[in-house]
Design a protein around this nucleic acid. Structure first.
Lengths: 347, 347
DNA sequence: TCTAGCGTAGAAACCGATATCTATCGAATG
DNA sequence: CATTCGATAGATATCGGTTTCTACGCTAGA
């Protein structure tokens, strides 16, 4: 009743050769007489033979698998990183595993552990990532373990764990993008720019930190003082932006532009502004970050910072599988100007 | 230099027991003295032992893996199906593999073959799917092969292969959604409704077919004749909608409403209407299909058909892993009314 | 003619965990 | 006191390819 798939032994018997020979025909790296090869191939076809990757992996071969670990499969920009990963993995003859952690560090560690069990060729971690020491230490441990096993831990869009930790790091210039966008807003005459999506006091996220840093540096570079009250902590979702913007409006804060820390936040902000009867960009300018596909389809089109998502994913896989290359890469970001930012108008 | 991970044998040696005992401690289904268990666990920790899933799979255990095959990782609604799959797989203690086919049937077959090699517990195919006989036959073959191997082929949002083919089918009521939306438009007084995103003459897609069918049936049910020229073939992307709508406008077609076959198409149509100076919904009403997350954030909000994406994914995994349940499920769809559809106004 | 060398193929060990079959010890039962 | 049973643990075969190591037959060079 149960599954009895054909094995090399079955194929060998049918073709009248030894299992070794069948294996050699499959791999093709050893001379096999043409006539024998033909017989074996026919037997394989007739028996509908399918290789067992577990048996192969057990006898030493690579698993031809890369693992991709992210917060949330539905995150609009992560999907593009995933695409890059999948593409490059396919191009390099690898299959691709995906795990979502839902932002839970404990689950992330469990997932990485599972990937170790799977003997993945590479484990790619995307986005966020906690900053506390216990977590970093455990992650370093994994990096070393994977390295010792001939595998690789890749940090994609998150900061390095330290110089002595064997990882591959693929980042993008988060701070630079924030700097460029803030400069753009300042050059349009805005002097009261609200930044929505900074850190909450308790928890630190490097993504948020870097974006705030770029925001601050641009102000300094323009010799403009910024209002700390306009740097408001918020999550990275639509609802977060909506809530934060509404509170800002209710409080009567004096901003002429909003720099949302993500496009999703910007969408929430946009809704809040609309509800308050404020026009974009006539009354308030709005900028985002990420350049998600729909940024262009909002009205007005969202001026935002483009991050090279697909390339991030592709690079991560490429570097992980070819260790001869540099193992720390920072990809560039640039601003995309659409309609949501205009000259400052006093209110 | 090369990887030497600890094995059960190493752990056994260090704990002063036999490999069998270590294995029993790991599985926990066989009595082991508490003191022995403690020693083994300590040895495992000290050696940083990690189980080898391939060895385990080879000796008969399930691989605890489900595979998820889709067209394009970045498809806005597929991401949600993926989320459902990932969630349910995790809930059932499974890991999740993802492969993109980029709409290439040949690649899809290659991917399914790879999944057979991986001995996945279930292979879930999402979306589209060719309709020609050679393809269907090959897919049926896979279904039988997987079934014989104790695995399962799941068709998610695509039509069954036939009654004698052992598959699990999870669909949603595609035709019903199109019927409901068309009825909604008709009830708003629209009598010239353009349907953008029908089949191109050559290739048939059941998704498109069903949506057209619902469109037609609604007209019949209302006793309204439809203009075949207003049923225009198009792909399911933004650009497809944009191009098709622009051509329709240029030709001076007399529509008062557009039913876009997907929200992405609707977004493209919206852009084309804007470019032509047409207001939505004052001049032209616009409806979509899928209810992607951004549908609510367009202005006006897009009236569209909601499909239960996450549930689709969750159901697919659940049914595949528990074969006692019914193996053909059709989930419901319903329309979501926002601002993009208004009463018909003659032009 | 003898042997070295090449092309080809089989036998057997191995990868790491698990399952089955035995074996031992002590306690309980008749 | 002998026997059986339960709890525990070891030995060994096994899953399905891969990989030496060995060997055979034939041709080419000494």
């Amino acid at each position: 009743m149960n599954a009895d798939r054909a094995t090399v032994r079955d194929v060998a018997a049918r073709a009248g050769v030894s299992p070794s020979t069948v294996s050699r025909v499959i791999k093709g790296d050893y001379p096999v007489a043409q006539s024998t090869k033909t017989r074996v191939l026919r037997a394989m076809r007739e028996l509908d033979y399918v290789l067992n990757v577990h048996a192969r992996a057990l006898s030493g071969a690579s698993t031809k698998m890369v693992a991709f670990v992210l917060d949330d499969v539905t995150g609009p920009s992560f999907a593009y990183v995933a695409k890059g990963v999948e593409q490059q993995a396919t191009a390099e003859g690898r299959l691709c595993m995906v795990c979502a952690t839902n932002g839970d560090p404990a689950r992330e560690l469990a997932v990485v552990e599972a990937m170790r069990e799977q003997r993945a060729d590479a484990v790619i971690l995307v986005g966020g990532g906690a900053l506390d020491d216990a977590y970093r230490e455990r992650m370093s441990h994994f990096a070393h373990a994977l390295d010792k096993a001939g595998s690789r831990l890749v940090l994609c869009g998150r900061p390095p764990l330290g110089d002595d930790v064997p990882t591959t790091v693929v980042e993008y210039d988060n701070e630079g993008g924030a700097f460029a966008m803030t400069s753009h807003l300042l050059s349009q005459g805005h002097r009261q720019i609200a930044l929505i999506g900074a850190d909450h006091p308790g928890q630190a996220s490097t993504t948020k930190l870097d974006r705030v840093r770029g925001f601050v540096r641009a102000h300094e570079s323009f010799g403009v003082a910024y209002d700390p009250d306009l740097i408001v902590p918020a999550g990275f979702g639509r609802a977060d932006g909506h809530t934060a913007a509404r509170r800002l409006i209710t409080l009567g804060a004096p901003f002429t532009a909003v720099f949302a820390a993500t496009d999703m936040v910007a969408i929430g902000v946009l809704a809040a502004l609309r509800e308050a009867g404020l026009r974009v960009p006539e009354d308030v300018s709005l900028a985002g970050y990420d350049d998600i596909p729909f940024a262009a389809d909002l009205s007005p089109g969202l001026t935002t910072v483009r991050i090279p998502t697909e390339e991030l994913g592709r690079t991560a896989v490429r570097l992980a599988l070819d260790r001869r290359q540099s193992q720390h890469v920072v990809l560039g970001t640039h601003i995309v100007v659409r309609g949501s930012v205009g000259p400052a108008t006093p209110r």
